[in-house]
Design a protein around this nucleic acid. Structure first.
Length: 431
DNA sequence: GTTGAGCGTT
């Protein structure tokens, strides 16, 4: 028996009526359709006067015992512990921030998969959250044995954020879903050529051209022979090339990674791994640097996640052709500039029309965080707390932990910054 | 046939 549920973004705003399903639940997809970025619902209980979260199981919000007879308001992810002094700023920014959070999906890494989990099972686990574009389990090429991790790609950014915000149990193991390190903010060079990584042999130059032409005119496609699992695509418009950098694209069923093509003969060309500054939880990236996270954890010379900055600040949009400056400096706030400067970031020196300039900055990132406390059995999340901690879901359903289908909890989100470093190998010299 | 932090045949 479906009905309409009154929902508004915040308390005391004009509600919108959203249709529930036949089974009386409200789909998350219905909710985010009207409230992008929402991750749950809460309401003020008339007796307790307290906020109550709405139970969320999978993709379905379940009516409170009293039914949908309240005005509900949205819960949005809180990526950081909010300090009191930030609340004003937070509320004044919240709407724009949410608008800016319309970002494209990226692949997500799924860590901790049971050895036996297949790609099919991986896909089937995530499908209830939303459309799955790609699911793969990394295997040893010889034995076919799973390496215990895989990648997943969703069609919807909102779904992606929801999946990132929850803990997962797949085939009896707790799995971590994160933004992979390969998605670190690629410094966007002024270059109309992009590097296409993770190509498979069945992707032809024509395939790449056809696929990428939808973003702009492709002037060249180059695939090294013999097969080297990467390619170059050159666009007429550097803006187009820039806009694709850092993204994953699915070409002929394969997730390829687009990054800036390193110039051929730059001895300075180093690893392309750059630091994630946001603790690895994706989304709201620029905001994460503001609460003591800082740009430069551990004192290494990582670069800020420029891709995240660029998107969240609306950089790189609408630049006229021929303007080789990838940054709209007018959009950079002083604190940002200060942060960038403090990060030892050599951008300014690189803006002088050096099309082949490349950052020689080393890799190293600060990800990690503490493993979750508590286990898959028992140790349920704190019940009925509408004010979740970082990474939490706002709408926390009370009751048990794993095993009863309760997915609303957040126990010990991995937002910590343990400062461990990891240096990936990077883009190799290529002639 | 084993394993359990990580990062995708650059």
């Amino acid at each position: 028996m479906s009905c309409y549920v009154q929902v508004c973004e915040e308390e005391n705003e004009e509600p919108i009526e959203l249709p529930s399903e036949d089974d009386g639940t409200l789909l998350m997809t219905t909710l985010v359709g009207s409230f992008p970025g929402a991750c749950g619902l809460k309401f003020r209980h008339p007796e307790s006067r307290a906020l109550r979260g709405v139970r969320l199981i999978g993709d379905r919000l379940h009516a409170p015992d009293e039914g949908w007879n309240f005005v509900f308001f949205c819960v949005f992810p809180k990526p950081e512990n909010k300090r009191k002094s930030d609340e004003l700023l937070e509320s004044s920014m919240s709407k724009t921030k949410r608008l800016e959070s319309f970002k494209k999906c990226s692949d997500l890494i799924v860590l901790g998969l049971p050895w036996k989990t297949t790609e099919k099972e991986l896909r089937e686990y995530f499908e209830p959250y939303g459309e799955v574009l790609m699911a793969q389990v990394k295997k040893d090429p010889k034995t076919g044995q799973s390496k215990g991790f895989g990648f997943i790609r969703f069609a919807s950014y909102e779904v992606q954020q929801r999946v990132l915000g929850q803990r997962h149990m797949i085939d009896g193991r707790v799995c971590d879903v994160k933004i992979p390190n390969s998605k670190e903010g690629a410094m966007q060079q002024v270059n109309s050529k992009v590097f296409i990584g993770r190509c498979t042999e069945d992707i032809s130059a024509d395939d790449l051209r056809e696929y990428f032409s939808k973003y702009g005119e492709v002037t060249d496609v180059f695939i090294p022979k013999p097969f080297r699992a990467f390619a170059f695509v050159t666009f007429l418009d550097p803006e187009v090339a820039q806009s694709l950098c850092g993204e994953d694209h699915i070409v002929k069923g394969t997730s390829v990674h687009v990054s800036n093509a390193a110039p051929k003969n730059d001895p300075n060309r180093g690893p392309f791994g750059r630091g994630r500054m946001d603790g690895g939880r994706g989304g709201y990236g620029y905001n994460q640097g503001m609460n003591g996270g800082g740009w430069n954890q551990g004192g290494n010379r990582d670069m800020p996640n420029l891709a995240a900055l660029g998107t969240s600040l609306g950089l790189g949009q609408g630049q006229g052709q021929g303007n080789v400056n990838p940054l709209n400096m007018g959009a950079l706030t002083m604190p940002m500039l200060a942060a960038l400067s403090q990060a030892g970031w050599g951008l300014l020196g690189n803006l002088g029309g050096n099309q082949d300039g490349n950052q020689g900055s080393g890799g190293g990132y600060n990800q990690g965080g503490q493993p979750p406390q508590g286990g898959p059995h028992g140790n349920a999340p704190p019940p009925n707390n509408a004010n979740m901690g970082p990474g939490g879901w706002g709408s926390n359903s009370g009751g048990g932990g794993w095993g009863d289908g309760n997915q609303g909890g957040s126990w010990g989100p991995s937002q910590g910054r343990s400062g461990d470093k990891y240096n990936r190998g990077g883009q190799q010299h290529y002639n």
